[in-house]
């Protein structure tokens, strides 16, 4: 067992500051994961995830935890795309994201793309646990290889729970060594960018989102719960972002 990779856990916790805004009593950077508070809008706090070194590399174990307490609003982005790279160490890298949002809390988790570079091996797991009454906007984008490059091996699992009930559990495996057919016409069909946008709003309980196809590359899918998924595939990162941004606009302002 290889233990030479980097191990790091970055943490952020958002709480109401008592003056209508949001404070961050926990904001811990670790190793290659640096968290920086930036100017937020309105009552929300904004944090930027800044890669302090390249990675994840083979053998690394990286994790980010974000915890949003009742009434707090947090927006997390990243300064640049994350590159999964082959490391000196053999073996896969792991990147775990754990998000918790309490009743009345709101989290916007909007990192830049994850790029699976040739020769890399990465397992990403993102798990969002929401209390009833919590709100979430979560975007994930995976790009298979830099421009014109063969991708690495990427396995990505996304799980969303609301009040203990799993409303979404999906895993995508692609790249060399992934189970057969991943690049065929049922899964990615030669497209190189794939993304998910999850929106959870208590208001969807009474007014569920309507399922619809958005052209040939994306669909809006109401999940079993006050949640919706936009799943999208595109030839490249730019077109994927356009699809997800276009879909995002369909949900309208979060008033409920």
């Amino acid at each position: 067992m290889n233990t030479a990779g980097v191990r790091a856990v970055a943490r952020v916790r958002a709480c109401p500051d008592g003056r209508g805004g949001t404070c961050l009593p926990v904001l811990e950077s670790d190793g290659p994961l640096a968290l920086r508070r930036t100017r937020g809008r309105g009552t929300e706090a904004q944090v930027l995830l800044v890669g302090a070194m390249s990675g994840p590399l083979g053998g690394d174990r990286l994790a980010v935890r974000a915890d949003v307490r009742p009434g707090a609003r947090l927006r997390v982005g990243s300064a640049a795309a994350t590159l999964a790279l082959p490391g000196q160490q053999a073996g896969e890298a792991r990147y775990d994201v754990r998000l918790t949002v309490a009743d009345g809390g709101e989290l916007h988790w909007l990192p830049e793309q994850l790029v699976s570079v040739r020769g890399s091996e990465l397992l990403v797991t993102t798990r969002a646990d929401l209390d009833r009454g919590a709100r979430l906007v979560l975007r994930e984008e995976q790009v298979l290889g830099r421009a014109g490059e063969e991708p690495g091996r990427l396995t990505s699992r996304l799980t969303v729970r609301i009040a203990g009930r799993t409303v979404l559990d999906q895993q995508l495996a692609c790249g060399p060594g992934a189970p057969g057919g991943w690049d065929g016409p049922a899964v990615l069909g030669g497209l190189r960018a794939v993304g998910q946008l999850v929106v959870v709003r208590p208001g969807f309980e009474d007014k569920p989102v309507t399922a619809r196809a958005l052209g040939e590359g994306a669909a809006v899918l109401p999940l079993p719960g006050p949640a919706a998924l936009v799943t999208a595939v595109a030839p490249d990162a730019l077109r994927l972002r356009r699809l997800l941004d276009g879909a995002s606009a369909l949900f309208g302002p979060a008033s409920d």
């Binding site: 559990d169 999906q170 995508l172 899964v187 990615l188 794939v194 196809a213 040939e216 999208a232």
Partner: peptide, 17 residues
């Protein structure tokens, strides 16, 4: 939760269309 969750994005997108 131990059950696999393998997904096929194009199947989902095309099913809706």
């Amino acid at each position: 939760d131990a059950l696999p969750a393998a997904s096929a994005p194009l199947l989902e997108v095309f099913a809706q269309a």
